[in-house]
Amino acid sequence: MKTVLIIIGATILIFIIKACMPSGQKPQPDTDTTRPSNEHLPKQEKPNDKLVIVDNISKTEMDSILNGFCNMYNKERFQAQPRLYKLNERQFAITFPFDIEFEIYCYFVNYVHYPMGFDKSFSVTGWETTKEANGWITEKSANKKVMLFIPEDDTEHDNVFLTTDNNIGYKLGFAMGEEKQLLQTPKKTYFAPTIDIKTLTEKEAQDFQ
């Protein structure tokens, strides 16, 4: 219950910040680095296949985005511990070796696309295999490989789109009652990641918390 309240509180905070900003001014990232004591830091990795690829972005921009997200979600509990891999000068891969709740994973994809403190968005795609217990997941999308993304024509800024590996599409809205909207056709056709997550272990990585 506490986790749910934290998620709801963080989401409401984002909307309040955006609503209170003067027109044309971008909300700034959370710079508060408050964290629980290290004794609460997860140390046992959990097998999962969550993978995010971000294109056309610099290392400096990537670091700023990941730090901003962790500042927002790790104040009271370590909910996001992304691991960053550099694929080339303008492309990065992110995994979650300690796993991350599905709802927060959706927020993560949205945040990377629409990061606070930036006047531009970034190309981001996430993949994972869903579970029936995941929030926002229905019988049509449970236990399937899925792709998460923000389409280029999005204007709402408070959602992510999901396509299953058998091309069932959903719009996952962050507002109450809009969490799982089945689409007649998916916004994008599913495609598998071009990178095998297992091969990333051979690369140098940077952990954020």
Rank of each mutant, 00 (worst) to 15 (best):
T185V: 06
G173E: 04
G173Y: 02
F191M: 11
D196R: 14
E179T: 13
E178I: 03
Y190V: 04
K187M: 03
E179A: 12
K180G: 07
L200V: 06
K198E: 14
Q184M: 07
I197W: 02
D196T: 13
K188A: 07
A192P: 05
Q181F: 02
K198P: 02
L182Q: 09
L182K: 08
Y190S: 04
E202L: 08
D196Q: 13
L182E: 12
P193N: 09
K198S: 13
Q184N: 15
P186M: 01
Q181N: 03
A192T: 12
L182N: 06
P186A: 01
T199Q: 14
Q184R: 11
T189N: 09
P193L: 08
T185F: 04
F174E: 07
Q181C: 02
E202N: 10
I195E: 10
Q181I: 12
E202D: 12
K188N: 06
Y190P: 02
L182A: 05
I197L: 05
A175Q: 14
F174V: 04
G173M: 01
D196H: 11
P193G: 12
T201G: 12
Y190Q: 04
M176K: 10
E202C: 06
F174R: 04
T189H: 02
A192N: 13
D196Y: 10
Q181V: 03
Q184V: 06
P193W: 08
T199A: 13
A192I: 06
K180C: 07
Q184I: 10
D196L: 10
G177L: 00
T201A: 09
L200P: 01
K198I: 11
G177E: 00
L200G: 07
I195Q: 14
K180V: 05
E179H: 14
L200S: 03
T194V: 12
I197M: 04
K188F: 03
K198M: 12
I195S: 10
M176S: 11
F191Y: 13
E179V: 09
E178Q: 11
I197Y: 04
T199I: 15
E178S: 13
T194E: 15
F174P: 03
Q184G: 14
E178W: 05
A192Y: 10
F174H: 01
P186E: 01
T185P: 01
P193H: 07
T189V: 05
L200M: 05
K187Q: 09
P186W: 01
G177A: 01
E178D: 13
K180S: 10
P186Q: 01
T189W: 05
K180W: 06
G173V: 01
Q181H: 04
I195G: 08
L200Q: 04
Y190F: 08
D196S: 14
P193Y: 07
F191L: 12
T199C: 12
M176C: 06
A175P: 12
F191Q: 14
